[in-house]
Design a protein around this nucleic acid. Sequence first.
DNA 1: ATTATATCCTGATCGC
DNA 2: TGCGATCAGGATATAA
Length: 270
Amino acid sequence: MPELPEVETVARQLAPFVVGREVRSLSILDPRLRAERTPRVAGRTIEQVYRSGKRVLLEFSAPPRGGRPLALAVHLRMTGRLLWETDGTKSAHDHLRARFRLDGGELLFADTRRFGTFHWYASAADALPDGMEPLSPKLTTLKLGQLIGDSRQNIKTWLLRQDRLVGLGNIYASEILHRAAISPFRPAGSLAKDELKRLHASTRHTLRRAIENCGTTFSDFQDAQGVEGSYQQFLAVYDRDGETCRRCGDSIRRVVQQQRSTYHCPGCQV
DNA sequence: ATTATATCCTGATCGC
DNA sequence: TGCGATCAGGATATAA
């Protein structure tokens, strides 16, 4: 499911249901999620839920008898989902991997492919990612150029690097480049100033528009509250191999870069 | 220091 | 209807 807009949607939708609730117990059903020692969360209150990069951060209060606060970063990877339930219907989920029993409901983590991860931190500040948030005002065009430097990596692959920018994935990397009219094959460091400007503007525009539309949903099944993204109707190139480019009329092509699909229009991406 | 490959999993879909 | 190959919105460890 999740790149930045989808994870943002999950966090926004989940927060009102769980913030302020106390954790009664946590059951981790998939041992893979216990790669890190699991701290005691029972008795703590969920204080904040928000997105950071592609992760959902949950901040917990200090335990009632004193101690330090706690933060959990949930990475959904390919198929992770966070579900809120009050009626017991979702507990039978085929791929339930963890369950937080809260005061007044349950927060469930389901994950078909089991790539999702839990990372625990002593504080939210410790959970800060390496890369920059692409929508941060601190990311200027100049800064973007500095991050790219003289990298000879192709720009599409560069956009996926979470140690530079966080949150971009395979769909939005292709979409952003198409909007910026930049070929995915271009060495990142070869972009001229005006191209960097277009790339920056396209990144902001694409992500904002996707967030407004609650992200992109391909599968028909719904998430926690039945919120489905609608950005798929705006996709210009992704998953449109052989179809017509709405900008120049050329035929959109699927290519493989670093073992991953890239969609682009050879006619108008130079 | 980059960059390619293999790997972690399960399920849906495609071509024969 | 069955079967194998391929693909999937992610990221890392290891090899070259």
